[in-house]
Design a protein around this nucleic acid. Sequence first.
DNA 1: ACTTTAAGATACACGACTGTAGCTAATCAA
DNA 2: TTGATTAGCTACAGTCGTGTATCTTAAAGT
Lengths: 208, 208
Amino acid sequence: MSAETGADAAETAGRTRRRGQALLDAIYTAAVEEAAAAGPGRLTMDAIAKRAATARSTLYRRWADPVDLLLDALAALHPVEQPAPGADDLRGDLVASLRLMADWAFSPAGRAVMAIVADPGRDPAAVEALFERVFARRGGTFTKTVLHHYAEHGRIDAARLTPVVLDIGEALVTKRMMDTGADPGDDYLAAIVDQAILPAVGLTPDTA
Amino acid sequence: MSAETGADAAETAGRTRRRGQALLDAIYTAAVEEAAAAGPGRLTMDAIAKRAATARSTLYRRWADPVDLLLDALAALHPVEQPAPGADDLRGDLVASLRLMADWAFSPAGRAVMAIVADPGRDPAAVEALFERVFARRGGTFTKTVLHHYAEHGRIDAARLTPVVLDIGEALVTKRMMDTGADPGDDYLAAIVDQAILPAVGLTPDTA
DNA sequence: ACTTTAAGATACACGACTGTAGCTAATCAA
DNA sequence: TTGATTAGCTACAGTCGTGTATCTTAAAGT
């Protein structure tokens, strides 16, 4: 008495029993997808468990509440790709870094993060934990990495790389996504670089 | 048989009966405050009714669900103050318009709107309705009003007032609020104007 | 092989919110 | 004053999520 007529047992769920990392990965993925789909405000242990095809008790053994779980998930998931400023192409590298950011922001993880930080009822401690655990290990923000690289090579004035300037690209991409709900196209990213970032660092698109 | 020993009846609630606009105002205020406190994801008819000191059935007579109610509330509430570009002070007017925006964004209505547009599980139709009903009647965004005013007076090149440039100020204020959770100080608003907006329209803080 | 661990599957009482219904009495318009 | 409207109250069944507590049996470790 084992297999028989049972349904096709979608991807071995139910008959085999996951443990350790495989189980964690499934739970983390489920948590982030659930957060991206419903928003952290509507995130429940129940929904995560269902999506991960596990039992609620399994979740309660490790985490006290859904947000706790979600923070672990965001920290554990594959880190965001890093911009790699390469050739002598400041403008191109900036556009590419914004492309990376937009792709990430549009992923389940990015949408979950955005919803967390925009949540009015957010727990300040949770946001702080999020920044520390998810972003701390990263060198910095997307355009920041690129801008600092070119500042070190003397292409732009390091004195102009203030916190405000380093935020321009990310801020505009974020706002665009909140306004339209869609991924900004490459044309828009290029416009951000040409019309906002480059002027702020004292360059024109031609001289970049 | 009327007053008797009843509790002090906080601000006549319970003994008098509100109708029409007075009741609507109370409900709208409660809805926005509730949304700002809990986030639209956690917004319930029950909580709104409790906060407005009315009965759920009163709400269900008019609205089908909490978001429906919230959209009406945001549309009905006092519109956002308009920036009034005045003297020949572009920089000062820009800072003032960002101050207006920050104050609004930090109000219950602003936080509710921010949470709605950042909600991953948001209903696109709701967001569209929000923009149409709440923002359409306004001339435009905060810095946009100011920038167009000075463009008409020849102070800045109208060709540079692209959608991206018109969004810079609002985007940076929004991001700052999401990052810190606090109202950006006037110093930061001035930095946004000096380091991001003015360079983008082709001016330096001195020439503004 | 045997033992230990813990995933998975129940079941349970509890609370919160839902949507509907019915009643009463306050408010308004005639 | 009279009648129509409807705010405010109460109750209800139903659903969903919560934590906790079992029990079984796979999947490790020895």
